[in-house]
Design a protein around this nucleic acid. Structure first.
Lengths: 155, 155
DNA sequence: ACTTGACCTAAACCTGACTTTAGGTTCTAA
DNA sequence: TTAGAACCTAAAGTCAGGTTTAGGTCAAGT
């Protein structure tokens, strides 16, 4: 199956200008063109878009993704490198998930804090509440990495 | 307790230039200075750094964070707005977690794919394996949002 | 043949979030 | 009281990841 750039943009939600930018950056090696120079996206390119999405989310830059795609062109000789890349990404994303979980806990605490404040009509109430009055499930709120060294309340 | 910019940078891992940038952007309302103009960080500012970290992770820009901090200055009149912001962020982060979970599944599939390829000595092996030969737990790999409309294999 | 919507390129532009630079001031310890 | 580390500002620079612009070309229907 083949698709025009406009069709791909419409179905994926990726801007036409972005697709052209990716192409400029070499993310679609061997993409075909019509006689007149018009891009012909195929399932190959759609697959690549999936890989780009995955690797981008996992924290790679466009240039790094290009590097990976270059390795794919090299054939079986680069299998080890490619494998390692994915294991590394898996580790990174696992960390990201933990980070995000901590952020969720903080947000949940804030939601509780403001619900309590609104119910009381003033922020002074949740602010002065002792830990013992804070619901168990909200106390999952314990601060993360870089600020661990300092304590935490409400600005 | 009071801290110099250098101390804060060292304990939080945030660059001095970044702390000064945040200050320039107004993220530390009412931060004190010494007679000579030297910043005096207090626990108030450290708390704000925690909020910045949380809101940044949840997808807010520096300008939006500044806005929130302005609301905090307004007092109880802005409680509702602040509450809504955190509920909204909670929803956004929940979506982000789902996104990340899908990315994890894709990565796990890729890890399996390359392990299989390396064991066989060639990518041709996992590439041509029928779905039925792919381990159950790896098949959690089903593609996400924007590319759902197209199918998925290996570029 | 002709129109018109979709496509093309190169090059300039944009934004966010910092960082660097250049030149000067403050603080602390000997 | 003076050296040097740590601090200050304003302004310019950087980088990624696009987007916009200007000026064309292509292709499908009439």
């Amino acid at each position: 199956m083949q698709y025009s750039i406009g069709e791909v943009a419409k179905t994926t939600g990726i801007a036409i200008s972005t697709l052209r930018y990716y192409d400029r950056e070499g993310l679609f090696p061997n993409m075909e063109r019509s006689g007149g120079g018009i891009r012909r996206f195929t399932d190959k390119e759609i697959e690549i878009l999936g890989v780009i999405e995955c690797l981008k989310t996992s924290g790679l830059s466009i240039k790094e993704i290009k590097l990976f795609l270059d390795w794919c062109q090299e054939g079986d000789g680069s299998l080890q490198k490619r494998r390692n890349l994915f294991y590394e990404r898996l580790a990174v994303v696992t960390k990201q998930m933990e980070e995000l979980q901590k952020t969720m806990n903080t947000l949940r605490f804030k939601c509780w804090y403001y619900d309590t404040a609104l119910a009381a009509g003033t922020e002074a109430v949740p602010k002065s509440l002792p830990q013992s009055e804070i619901p168990e499930d909200i106390l999952a709120y314990q601060r993360s990495g870089c600020l661990k060294s300092f304590e935490q309340t409400e600005p």
